[in-house]
Amino acid sequence: MKNTAKLRSTNGGNLMKTQKKLLILAAVLLLPGTNGWGGEKAKLGPCVRQCVQAYNPSLADSGADEFMAADFRAKECVTLCKESLYQGECSSSADGCCHPEYLAIDPDCQTEPPPDNPGNSTLPPDPGEAGKATLAGIDSDGDGIRDDIQRYIALTYPDSRKTRAALKQFTLALHRAILESPDEESALSNTELEARAGECLWYIHSEDAIIISNLLMAEYLNTLERSRAYLEYDSKLGGHVFGSKDLDTYKTSCTFDPDLMEDY
């Protein structure tokens, strides 16, 4: 049922627009349930009134229909209420459907895409030199990403959730490459993960993906042991032939849906 959300338009506006919508939506969600309401107007009316007043608390409700019809903000509220409260629609509440415009508050979006922590306060501490002691490094929160790399991604790309998600996919592939490629067969298998992660990043950033991924790799290969392990993995790939997807199918290489993510 998660796929429903993937069909929706994701041409969301900027951050301010989203925040404003979230405020309005919070007010909308405070309304009583829609069960037992009569016709369309009966369903929409209270929602829109409350939405308009949440949008601008100073606006007095005269009780007249003109109150809503005349105000352009009311039109936006009508749209919002239709989207959010109609039976059968995907709402931002826990309903088994992730609404793409409310990724931050819809509980159904919290498992898709993978959660991330762009803010410094929620990041694991910098492991420092201790994080360089082993090939695998330190992953204190067990998310599969080394703590230093988790911090690098979050702090370097705080404004792009899809970039962070793509780089985590890329990091997981690198991790497999250096830790789980003891022979040629495993290296050949793991390089497919790395290739798909690169295609996903390319889908998001086009040619800039090259620099973004190289910068990440320079951070990831931050010890001699890790650099040697990666070169050892790469040496097992020499002489082979590799296919690639068509450009217009690169999105399918992502392990998440980047189109569901606004850049914040």
């Binding site: 020499g238 002489g239 082979h240 032939v241 590799f242 296919g243 690639s244």
Partner: peptide, 10 residues
């Protein structure tokens, strides 16, 4: 056109 990589060892 399909695009493949004939990877040469380093």
């Amino acid at each position: 056109i399909a695009f493949d990589l004939a990877y040469n060892e380093t």
